[in-house]
């Protein structure tokens, strides 16, 4: 088994554990490269099926291509797609910096959906290498009743044993891609021929490395127009993946505050 086989095996194992141990689960599908890999792993785990809903929290500021991709693939792959909207930015915590305030809308949008569907567990495609705070995450990460993350008192996870026993009212975030890196995602996308949104590929000297809302995500300079070229680019770049995400650069602890409040 090579490194991608190991990552795939870990993801499949986590999907199967969560599906067996938890009653009411759903998967976040942001339509980005990571969540497309995550969806692929789910289909591998369940032999082509996705036995739970996939959830897209629509900020109504996504790129049109993403929405088109969503609706087309949901039909083609037989997904149970659930979408939900977000509150206007004016209703967000005014002490947060502007872009973080914008990103916080998504957290509230997800909370609304969760209040309606009462999921006990949600799969999210975060990776440790994306951001320092995410490096501290667990595969099965409990949230309290108010969705907050208590990073000081996290349950231990070892020997492939995850915490799947919880008092009533606990909500879990499950992270099948935690061990992956950005390059792993692209290598796997290439190996498995996973369909991908074209915004990741260079047009007129620019491409998106990370896709968020149109108003707070910016393309980076790049000539990479194929996955091979993207991988090549990533092996030499010293620009970080979320460089185009405005909210990461506003305040030293803005991301941590978002995440404790339930941001993915």
């Amino acid at each position: 088994m090579n490194d991608l086989d190991h990552l795939e095996a870990e993801g499949i194992y986590i999907f199967r554990e969560a599906f067996n141990r938890l009653d009411n689960i759903a998967m976040l599908w942001s339509l980005g490269k990571d969540s497309n890999v995550m969806l692929w792993l789910a289909r591998k785990a369940f032999f082509g099926h996705v036995p739970f809903p996939v959830v897209h929290v629509d900020t109504e500021r996504k790129f049109p291509e993403m929405i088109e991709f969503r609706d087309r693939k949901a039909k083609e792959w037989g997904l149970n797609l659930i979408t939900g909207l977000c509150p206007p930015v004016e209703e967000m915590d005014p002490t947060l910096p502007p872009a973080a305030r914008s990103a916080a809308r998504k957290t509230v949008g997800l909370k609304w959906l969760n209040d309606k569907y009462k999921w006990t567990g949600i799969f999210a495609g975060i990776r440790r290498d994306e951001q320092a705070v995410r490096a501290k995450e667990r595969f099965f990460s409990p949230r309290g009743e108010t969705s907050e993350w208590d990073f000081r008192d996290q349950p231990p996870e070892f020997w492939g044993q995850f915490n799947t026993d919880f008092p009533p009212g606990t909500h879990l975030r499950i992270h099948p891609l935690l061990s992956w890196t950005e390059i792993d995602i692209w290598r796997y996308t290439q190996r498995e021929k996973i369909p991908t949104i074209s915004l990741y590929f260079s047009k007129n000297g620019k491409r998106y490395r990370s896709l968020g809302d149109q108003d707070i995500t910016f393309p980076v300079d790049s000539e990479a127009s194929t996955i091979d070229e993207i991988i090549q680019e990533l092996t030499t770049t010293t620009v970080s993946e979320r460089a185009g995400r405005a909210m990461d650069h506003e305040q030293e602890d803005a991301f941590e505050r978002l995440r404790r409040a339930g941001y993915m």
């Binding site: 490194d3 991608l4 440790r128 290498d129 950005e182 970080s240 993946e241």
Partner: peptide
């Protein structure tokens, strides 16, 4: 940690130690 720096590259298919 940023994902971007060079040493993160795993192209060999080898499992990291």
């Amino acid at each position: 940690m940023s994902a971007a720096s060079k040493p993160h590259v795993t192209l060999s298919g080898q499992n990291p130690f």
